[in-house]
Design a protein around this nucleic acid. Structure first.
Lengths: 210, 210
DNA sequence: TTCCTTGTTATACATTCGTTCAACAAGGAA
DNA sequence: TTCCTTGTTGAACGAATGTATAACAAGGAA
């Protein structure tokens, strides 16, 4: 088997549609983020993780910082998408609310790799204005979805309630429980975290179907 | 004025006691963390921030990663110290509980710079085993302080309560509110965040002195 | 087959990173 | 004053960073 024969038999690389390749690179970047935090978000590691050459990142993205933006937007998209099937769920506000909450305590959201990646990104959001803008927009949608459901439930049950404030509380609680579990799994697990959220809600709204 | 005369008049640097210098470097590192996240945690930036030469960090610490450890421990120490005067506060469990909570919504804890630094560190805790161990220890103390107070209050009021679970909830909620405020101050402020914590507690325990 | 578009590689480059180390000098001790 | 300890500097080093660019080649179009 000569060198040229081998070269003919097996192409040195496979061409991939640009959009697909971008997606592959974004996914590889998220894996790096989950494994090594923001320190692992480098051209070398990401391109190696994606099994492509270093140069390809700059071909498909606006540099490494451009990739970071797109990674953040991809993650918020997939979070909202995970909730979307539940956000526009057929059924009353109670079903919608519990569906959204349960989504946050189930894979793919509730997983070490995903939450580690989020944790790494939050540290950058505080500093990076573009990430901050993206964060604000997606959290508004998130907060509104929960707030609307809470508002409807409270109205139906004739409970006086600041739905926006409680939505903020629920989201903060979920984020905080994610962190506790991510940094020290010995003090929380999936079920107790989920139960904590429902305990807070039921203390205000009364029993919820779940 | 000759060169030597000037040199005699103004020493090129001032010698500082080792412990004090270490503290100065740690504080400079925290300032960098708050300004630029973990990406700004470099020898160059920190030594410039502290107005010393690059070499000094390796003289006083076990490399840049050693400094990171000590920065984390210094921050947890100062958090616990901020609460300590309230942790061993004279008075009943109710006063102790409200004192600890209020500490978390008052400077120096509740400030953009402090919380940005925490956010940057959390992203590293998930990856770094030594940071993780340090985190676990300090949060145990934190959780126990709140849990004990909650337990005493519940007992006095004859309220059935899982104090440990509620302590976890309170801490997660505080962390989550910190994040929301840090990443988007338009949706929360100090007072509404603090109010959210008390609302959760009072829904279980009844009215609290505050 | 012969093109030609464009996804892909590989190298080179200037910076910046963390660490090491010899030399320096501040400031107290004698 | 004269030591001497040790906090401090500054340069040097290799490794790693992100970017730019020329050469390559895969795979469809003609």
């Amino acid at each position: 088997m000569t060198k040229t024969a081998a070269a003919k038999a097996k192409p040195r690389f496979a061409r991939v549609d640009a959009d697909l390749r971008r997606q592959m690179l974004i996914e590889a970047a998220i894996r790096c983020l989950a494994e090594g935090g923001i320190a692992a978000f480098t051209v070398d590691r990401i391109s190696r993780e994606a099994n492509v050459s270093r140069g390809l990142i700059n071909h498909h993205f606006d540099g490494i910082s451009g990739l970071l933006i797109e990674v953040y937007e991809a993650m918020t998209q997939s979070m909202l998408a995970a909730g979307r099937e539940t956000l526009f769920f057929e059924g009353g506000p109670e079903e919608r609310l519990t569906a959204v909450i349960d989504t946050m305590f189930r894979a793919p959201m509730f997983s070490k790799s995903s939450l580690r990646a989020w944790l790494a990104l939050w540290g950058e959001v505080a500093t990076n204005p573009r990430l901050k803008a993206s964060h604000r927009k997606s959290y508004d949608a998130y907060r509104r979805a929960i707030g609307d459901a809470l508002s409807e439930i409270a109205k139906a049950r004739k409970v006086k309630l600041d739905a926006e404030a409680l939505a903020m509380t629920v989201i903060a609680l979920i984020d905080g429980l994610w962190i506790e579990w991510c940094l020290d799994s010995s003090v929380v697990d999936r079920d107790s975290a989920r139960a904590a959220v429902y305990a807070v809600l039921e203390a205000r709204l009364g029993p919820l179907k779940r």
